[in-house]
Structures are given as C-alpha cells and as structure tokens.
Amino acid sequence: MSAQSGKRRPYLRPISGWWKRDPYFIRYLAMEATSILIALYALILLFGLLRLSQGEAAYNGWLETLQSPLSVGLHVLLLLVFGYHSYSWFKIMPKTLPAIHWRGAKVPQPVITRIGVAAAVVLNLLVIAGLAGVQP
C-alpha cells in the first residue's frame, strides 16, 4: 500500500481563464459589470444635485451638458444596460427567497422573475407618467 501511495501525485489544473470556459460565466460577468455602469450613473445624478445646490445657472449648465449628442448616446446605452441589469436582478431574486406557496403549490422561480420584471416596468411607466404630468 505504501509503495502505491508513494506514486500519488495529484494534479490540480490551473483556474486561469475560467470565465471563458462557459457562456454562462460570461453572462454572469456581464451582469456584474452592469453594476459598475449603474454606480457611474448614480454619480452623474449626484453631480446634478450638487450643481442644483450651487444655483440655477450651475444647474442649467448641467442640464445642457446632458443634452449633448454624446450624452444622449450614453443614455441610450445606459438604458439598455439598466434593462439587462433589472432583468438579471429579478432572475436571481427567486434564489434569495424561501419557497413561496400559492394555493397549495410552489410558485415556480420563472414566475417570480416575471412578476418582478412586470412590477419594475409598471413602476417605471408610472414614474415617467408622473414626471410628464409635472412638466411645465
């Protein structure tokens, strides 16, 4: 037996490049990366708040910058990123919850995801409608 175990030489394969191994991992990393862009957008909004506190001229300057073609392009891109982020967030949501039962049956995870996405869409439409209402 000891002669046998002397021959043991377990080989551990390197993990580098693990994320290229499966498209699932690439989707996961893309989902994680969207949070960085979302943090970036939060900074842009916070900066707007700062400009607001500095008076009307400063705030209008900030608004004007937002209307540049570059900024509009960025917003379109960010909208797509936000869409994917929200979807992936609700996709993982059922994993964080204990099983939910409805009329004696377990609610399937994709249903929970769909309810979440639907709620997000409705809320966003309400906010947009509300904002449209306050526009001068």
Partner: peptide, 15 residues
Amino acid sequence: AAVAYCSEVCPKEVD
C-alpha cells in the same frame, strides 16, 4: 457570489 451555475448543473434539482 450568486453565480448560480451550481443549480443549473445539479442532476437532482437540489438548487
């Protein structure tokens, strides 16, 4: 880190 690929590959739907 909630990659959650474990639940995809599990042959027994343990999740």
